[in-house]
Write a protein that binds this DNA or RNA. Structure first.
Lengths: 243, 243
DNA sequence: GTGCAGAAATTGGTTGGACCATTGAACCAC
DNA sequence: GTGGTTCAATGGTCCAACCAATTTCTGCAC
């Protein structure tokens, strides 16, 4: 009832260009890192102006699908297919403590669900991969006394990837990005993340045991410790970090 | 240790244009629906070519921040601020059904958490607003026998807004378009959404009663019914909806 | 004055051509 | 090999013009 009879597209040059290009990529089986045809060549082949090609590529660049290097060429940055779906996510974030807690709330919701789904759907290979990341992280934790944030992140990424839903990883990556806007100044809490350490293994155990509810519960505990750390840190400095 | 000495940026015309434009929007306090300056004016004022302005606007358009209407002008479609974070979500190889299920999993995670937070944090005014949306939705449901998707959506938005965390609404909004692509073609299930109807009020009751766990449980039930409807619809048509 | 059709101005969309800046490869001197 | 130099390829920017959709203005009929 709302809007049948969609507006006819009398002009959609850029979209047509992108569709054609997606088809080309598919046909040539191009993968990430490989080089696309020159803008000039595309313009000539598709019978459109180079400017139009550029606008189309600009869109793909904005979506992170493609990278343009002046003097070199245009390269695929991710797998593209003619039937992709894009959902631009824009986060207007407060750069303050409240904003940080906001990202954690999202993370709590997603992390719990992803861990549960992972316990249901992960294959053996994926579980092995998660365990490998876990081992790496624990080793880094022993060696460098706590600062294992990179390996920590990779562990979580592996869990998200094994959840079978790519959106989890992508959304959390956005949260991670926002999180890192503050991470440079860890609020004075030096042993940040210590408390969350043991839960990584308990989460993994639940996943390996195919226990979704357990995995969800452990994930919630992990986030809770991070939240506590954060609140403690905020109480520590007590200075209003308005910028 | 990781990446000091970042690559120096010798050219970043488009980014500069967008930054300037974001500053302009902020200074003029422009909101969604309002008109931006002409491309030609922007080009002149910023001392760049109109082409460059167009590439910049193309990026914003791709991100859904702006809408260009030939012959009319360029209009803001969402609130923009100089410090936004963009993270386009890409669902590869998605026939629409799989994509929709993916978004539903995200929605399940966020909806449950948001309802719980809402039960804890919503003020009286916000609860009243939610109830108003609920009444509107129920009225629309009675009148138009089921098709209450717009009002339904507004109810959920109100809940997200009252959760005290703007990220919930922003993330779900990114998936809204995909939901709507389906609402138009309800998969042959004519009474789509009927099953979820009663849970809207039970969710509200829990929120009003300050019962986070109850709200979470009811939200999960609601999503479960939507998932069931969807699976039923997919089973109904049984035709591979490759496009 | 009102209403409406047609002209004119406005604005995004497209084109073609030119030139600049960076890259990378080939080449050369040492 | 190392370090420059040259040179072609390629993305980045600019310009000027025109096309197409929209909006606004104008003038005529009533």
């Amino acid at each position: 009832m709302t809007d049948l009879l969609p507006p006819i597209q009398t002009t959609a040059r850029d979209d047509a260009v992108l569709k054609a290009l997606a088809g080309f990529v598919r046909q040539e089986a191009l993968g990430p890192g490989e080089k696309l045809p020159t803008e000039r060549i595309l313009a000539e082949r598709l019978k459109v102006s180079r400017n139009t090609v550029r606008e189309a590529l600009t869109r793909w660049e904005g979506l992170g699908l493609v990278e343009r290097r002046q003097g070199s060429g245009t390269y695929l940055k991710a797998a593209v297919s003619p039937d992709m779906l894009h959902m631009p996510l824009t986060l207007a974030g407060g750069n303050d403590f409240a904003g940080l807690m906001s990202t954690l709330e999202i993370r709590r919701a997603l992390e719990a669900e992803a861990a549960a789904l992972c316990a249901i759907r992960a294959g053996k290979a994926e579980i092995a991969e998660i365990e490998r990341k876990l081992d790496l992280m624990e080793e880094a934790f022993q060696t460098r006394a706590g600062m294992s944030s990179d390996e920590d992140w990779e562990f979580h990424q592996a869990v998200f990837r094994a959840s079978g839903n790519p959106l989890f990883e992508q959304i959390i990556a956005a949260m991670y990005e926002m999180f890192h806007r503050f991470w440079e100044h860890p609020l004075g809490v030096r042993d940040f993340g210590h408390a969350s350490f043991p839960y990584h293994r308990t989460i993994f155990n639940c996943i390996a045991a195919r226990d979704p509810d357990g995995a969800r519960a452990e994930a919630l505990k992990l986030i809770a410790t991070v939240e506590d750390d954060l609140k403690r840190g905020a109480a520590n400095l007590k200075l209003s970090d308005r910028r």
